[in-house]
């Protein structure tokens, strides 16, 4: 248990949640390394938020095990949650209270948070998300982006070992999104493990070290970002009139040639298990008298991987 505590901030084993006949979360084995910025990806309705609710003890799992910071959930909930800051499915605040009063309220709800430094901590948290000027304003007058920032401020009232942020940039303008990204980097730099769920891939690609992809309640991929990108393998796009000679060369490097381009001058070849250096491939092509008009090594973007894993289009898989 103790060794796991240092290794994984979040670990689940066969985590399953059933609503009636529908499996919202289906046998999920999450491994979130301590200190990682972990992107939790998946289209809408893939079970991300339900998983987060299970992790935080808001809902109980139908089966499976959860370990947060090396302790079992929900058994050790009272000991674990003070070390976890969270933003779950958008911010939730009392509209008739000011931003600061809302934070006071939620801080008072944590029996471990000391009241002595409460006002200083509330002030600091508001400053960090750039809401000091609106601290006294009632939340009903806040914009969606301001509420989102207030939600993040709530997660930062106490230094946490783990932050769980569900769609943290939802409703934020581009500047706000950038600020949240830099805030996440800053917090990660201090050693906080950050678990960010998002359906915006660009966001994940920019800040995360690790990621997992959910689809229809299942975890379909998990690993470091480069591992995830690499699974699909890189491929070469070659433009040349000497088709057959090029295919011979590619085959020699263990590459498989996919469909030719529409005009017959374009070739797509994917690397096998060995990835030869591109310059050696080009040199070999030239040696074989293949006229190279253009040669590009393409790596699948995370977006391509994401679509490969979760399917395309708006149809939410059932």
């Amino acid at each position: 248990m103790t060794s796991l505590a240092s290794e994984f901030a979040i670990r689940t084993e066969g985590l399953t949640k059933r609503f009636g006949s529908q499996l919202a979360v289906n046998g999920v084995d999450l491994r979130v390394p301590s200190g990682a910025v972990f992107g939790f990806l998946g289209p809408n309705g893939s079970g991300k938020t339900t998983t987060i609710r299970l992790l935080l003890g808001l809902a109980s799992a139908t089966s499976g095990e959860i370990e947060l910071l090396g302790r079992r959930m929900p058994d050790d909930l009272a000991a674990v949650l003070p070390e976890v800051g969270a933003l779950v499915e958008g911010p939730g605040f009392y509209p008739y209270l000011s931003g600061a009063a809302n934070l006071y309220r939620l801080d008072a709800a944590d029996g471990h948070a000391t009241s002595v430094t409460r006002s200083a901590r509330v002030q600091t948290a508001l400053e960090r998300v750039g809401l000091s000027h609106a601290a006294g304003k009632k939340v009903k007058a806040y914009s969606l982006g301001m509420k989102q920032r207030l939600g993040i401020a709530n997660a930062l009232l106490i230094p946490r070992r783990l932050l769980v942020l569900d769609e943290p940039t939802n409703g934020l303008d581009p500047q706000g999104t950038r600020e949240v990204r830099s805030l996440i980097r800053l917090l990660a730099g201090e050693g906080t493990t950050i678990f960010v769920s998002s359906h915006l891939l660009a966001e994940i690609e920019q800040i995360c070290t690790d990621a997992a992809v959910m689809s229809v309640g299942r975890l379909v991929a998990q690993g470091t970002l480069s591992e995830l990108r690499g699974v699909g393998g890189a491929r070469v796009r070659l433009e040349s009139p000497d088709r057959n000679a090029a295919i011979t060369v590619f085959t020699r490097f263990g590459m498989t040639v996919a469909e030719p381009g529409p005009d017959g001058t374009e070739l797509l070849a994917s690397f096998g298990t060995l990835e030869p250096a591109p310059d050696t491939v080009v040199a070999a092509l030239v040696e074989a008298h293949v006229r190279v008009f253009s040669f590009t090594v393409e790596r699948p973007s995370l977006e391509q991987r994401f679509v490969d894993l979760t399917g395309e289009g708006f149809d939410v898989a059932q």
């Binding site: 609710r53 935080l56 003890g57 009272a78 911010p91 939730g92 605040f93 939620l106 709800a109």
Partner: peptide, 16 residues
Amino acid sequence: AGTLRYLLIAPAGRTR
């Protein structure tokens, strides 16, 4: 209001 989940993960404790 959506505040219940935040009270519970504070954690306020359900019985309390």
